[in-house]
Structure formats: C-alpha cells, structure tokens
Lab assay of single mutants.
Amino acid sequence: MSIQHFRVALIPFFAAFCLPVFAHPETLVKVKDAEDQLGARVGYIELDLNSGKILESFRPEERFPMMSTFKVLLCGAVLSRVDAGQEQLGRRIHYSQNDLVEYSPVTEKHLTDGMTVRELCSAAITMSDNTAANLLLTTIGGPKELTAFLHNMGDHVTRLDRWEPELNEAIPNDERDTTMPAAMATTLRKLLTGELLTLASRQQLIDWMEADKVAGPLLRSALPAGWFIADKSGAGERGSRGIIAALGPDGKPSRIVVIYTTGSQATMDERNRQIAEIGASLIKHW
C-alpha cells in the first residue's frame, strides 16, 4: 500500500482519535458579512469528516447552483462504474471539434489522439474542462443518470439537468442544476469515506481534487503551510461562485467545507476574496 493510499485508508482512524471539535460562531459572522459585502445569498456548511456531524452552517438547506462543483460527483459516478466493471479508466475516447464547448483548455489539445477516461476526469476536476465533463456525462448516460446515481446514494436534493455550459445559467428560483450545502457536503463525505467506492477509487477521487489547479484564489489562499486540501470550485452566471473541499491540518483532511453564493453584482475577484476570507476565519478558529 502506498503512503497516499495509507493516508486515505486511515482518515477515519486518525479522526477518531482527534480531540473533540467545537464550532466557532466567528466564522458564521464572516459568512454573514460576506453576504453584506456581496449583496447576495451565501450558503455555508462545515462537517466533521469522521462523524458527519454538522459543526457550523448557514442557509444549509437553500438551493444554490452547483456550477462546476458537480464534476466531482460526476467522476465519482464514473469511478463507481469502474468498480462495477462497467468502465475502464484506460479506455480512450475520441471526439471532434464539434464536441468542444466553451472553456476546454485540455480537451482542445487532444482532438487528434483523444483522451482516456482517467485523463478526462483529471481534466474535468483539476482544470474544470467543460468538454471533458460533457464527454464523461455521455459515458454514464447524461445528466439524468448522474441525478439517479445521487438518488441511489441517498441524495434526493442534488440534481443535474443540463450539460456544460448551460448548467451554469443560475436563474433565480430555478431548481435545475442545483444542490443544497448540506446535501453536497453529505454526498461528498460519502464519496470520500464511505463504502460506495473502493479504496482505490476513493484515493483516485481525492487525488484529482488535491491536484486542483484553478481554485488557488479561494480556500487555498488562506491555508497555512502543512495543511491538506482537496477541492473543486465552480463559477456561473449572475454572480455565482462555489467551492467544495476536504481539508485539515497535519497533512490530512478532517472536515468537509461547502460554500456557495449566487445573485451578486460583485466582480469575480471580490467573490473570490470573500470566500478566501471565510476560509481564513475557519482556519483561525479551527
């Protein structure tokens, strides 16, 4: 067993022997301040990774656009098919120029040779490549099948209805392509620590998230040296922004954090800054 596999296998073990965790309302004060600064709703939840206990939450059962955070769930569904012998990570998928959609920095470079399922998941999570996500959605049967996968996990809230990039439209009061912070946090925890996926697939999923290259201005910008984070960000229309993450000190994750916002007129930089400040408060009061 590799060191990384050992780390993920012992996530519940280490967490069980940690000192009790206590909620700190100071972080919620910052979440509410972010709402004021952005002029928009902000949803927040913080779960203990081992027990699933909610440590703090704000608007945990209000719907927010998922945006690209759905790509972690998508690759979880792909990995479940791999575990069941219905898919192979090494299978190569070929596609054409007509398949390319807006923001496809990886797939646009491989029109000639195609990409493997493993490479597509890596591109979808680490670079948020939209064509990679659409190609992977095709392998599982489309958005409705991802929703069905989530329902089978016990998540009857999260739903995907459309493809990239239309799913980022974020129309107010439109339930399409949305989740709730509580539902997303619980589902992410199941994917990373539950028995739904094999140990190898859980490790692969967290490795992809740990290698995320496009979430630097968010929670990662607030992390002290030595902290662990595996995350996936999302951005959408109407001032929408979000991030889902597993993080913790001492090089291992111990909490799940989900943050979503929508309806702001603020710039992307300002949305990023507010999420980073929430992260800084979380870490300060850990």
Results as ranks from 00 to 15, higher is better:
279 G>P: 00
124 A>D: 01
198 T>F: 08
271 R>L: 12
118 R>L: 13
221 S>E: 07
40 A>N: 03
191 L>M: 10
190 K>D: 10
47 L>I: 13
218 L>H: 03
140 I>R: 03
135 L>E: 13
264 S>I: 04
60 P>M: 11
139 T>H: 08
198 T>I: 11
173 N>T: 07
149 F>E: 13
71 K>R: 00
78 V>H: 15
201 S>L: 15
194 G>C: 09
271 R>K: 07
233 S>W: 02
61 E>H: 14
158 T>P: 01
222 A>R: 06
224 P>W: 03
194 G>Y: 15
44 Y>W: 03
283 I>L: 12
105 P>D: 05
204 Q>S: 09
151 H>I: 09
129 D>A: 00
33 D>F: 05
204 Q>G: 05
244 I>Y: 02
255 R>A: 08
279 G>L: 07
188 L>T: 06
88 Q>Y: 14
117 V>D: 01
117 V>P: 07
223 L>E: 02
169 E>F: 07
82 V>I: 12
99 D>A: 09
171 I>R: 15
183 A>M: 06
247 L>H: 01
61 E>A: 10
180 M>A: 04
237 E>D: 09
239 G>Y: 02
47 L>D: 02
136 L>G: 02
29 V>Y: 13
176 R>Y: 05
270 E>D: 11
273 R>F: 08
197 L>S: 08
31 V>P: 01
194 G>W: 14
215 A>L: 04
252 K>G: 09
243 I>D: 03
207 D>Y: 06
114 G>N: 12
24 H>E: 10
250 D>V: 05
156 H>M: 13
220 R>Y: 03
71 K>D: 00
71 K>P: 00
233 S>C: 04
78 V>A: 08
160 L>K: 00
128 S>D: 01
97 Q>H: 06
168 N>V: 09
230 A>K: 00
177 D>M: 01
56 E>T: 08
28 L>G: 07
128 S>G: 03
245 A>F: 03
172 P>H: 07
191 L>C: 13
93 I>H: 05
143 P>G: 07
153 M>L: 04
64 F>R: 00
211 A>F: 15
147 T>L: 06
125 I>K: 00
174 D>A: 06
77 A>S: 08
223 L>W: 06
240 S>N: 07
129 D>N: 01
197 L>C: 07
150 L>Y: 13
186 T>C: 14
112 T>E: 15
214 V>K: 15
112 T>N: 13
278 I>F: 12
101 V>D: 11
277 E>H: 10
242 G>V: 01
106 V>N: 06
283 I>E: 12
174 D>L: 11
32 K>E: 14
284 K>D: 11
128 S>T: 02
169 E>A: 11
90 G>F: 06
94 H>K: 04
279 G>I: 11
201 S>A: 13
213 K>I: 06
203 Q>W: 03
256 I>T: 05
202 R>I: 15
98 N>V: 10
165 P>H: 14
76 G>L: 05
256 I>Y: 04
136 L>I: 09
51 S>H: 07
120 L>I: 08
98 N>S: 11
59 R>W: 12
49 L>Y: 12
38 L>C: 11
55 L>R: 14
278 I>G: 01
202 R>V: 12
162 R>V: 02
128 S>N: 01
234 G>P: 00
229 I>R: 01
244 I>F: 12
269 D>A: 12
211 A>W: 15
89 L>H: 07
231 D>M: 10
59 R>F: 03
87 E>H: 04
126 T>V: 07
42 V>D: 00
56 E>C: 04
27 T>Q: 10
110 H>C: 06
180 M>N: 15
151 H>K: 04
112 T>S: 10
116 T>W: 02
118 R>G: 11
212 D>W: 03
242 G>A: 09
108 E>D: 10
63 R>I: 15
186 T>L: 11
194 G>M: 09
110 H>P: 11
50 N>T: 12
270 E>M: 03
231 D>T: 11
167 L>Q: 05
75 C>I: 09
146 L>N: 02
242 G>M: 02
235 A>I: 09
189 R>P: 02
127 M>H: 07
208 W>S: 03
226 G>V: 03
142 G>I: 01
72 V>F: 03
238 R>S: 09
278 I>P: 01
35 E>T: 06
89 L>Q: 04
40 A>P: 03
208 W>A: 13
63 R>V: 07
214 V>R: 14
253 P>N: 04
219 L>D: 09
274 Q>V: 05
206 I>C: 08
75 C>H: 01
67 M>S: 15
216 G>D: 10
83 D>V: 09
105 P>A: 05
138 T>M: 15
207 D>G: 10
200 A>R: 12
232 K>C: 01
88 Q>T: 08
47 L>G: 12
180 M>I: 15
26 E>V: 15
276 A>S: 06
47 L>K: 07
210 E>D: 13
149 F>C: 13
222 A>F: 08
211 A>Q: 13
42 V>S: 03
134 N>Y: 13
152 N>A: 11
273 R>M: 10
124 A>K: 01
163 W>T: 12
247 L>Q: 02
254 S>T: 11
266 A>D: 07
128 S>I: 01
99 D>V: 06
73 L>A: 10
111 L>K: 07
76 G>E: 00
164 E>M: 00
90 G>W: 04
266 A>V: 05
247 L>V: 06
183 A>H: 14
194 G>H: 13
150 L>H: 07
140 I>T: 10
62 E>H: 04
242 G>N: 15
183 A>S: 14
277 E>C: 11
125 I>W: 01
94 H>Y: 06
26 E>Y: 14
134 N>Q: 12
249 P>K: 13
76 G>T: 09
200 A>L: 12
190 K>M: 04
114 G>V: 03
277 E>Q: 13
49 L>N: 04
277 E>K: 07
77 A>Q: 04
71 K>C: 00
235 A>L: 06
223 L>F: 04
215 A>N: 15
60 P>S: 11
142 G>S: 06
218 L>R: 02
47 L>N: 03
33 D>P: 01
85 G>H: 07
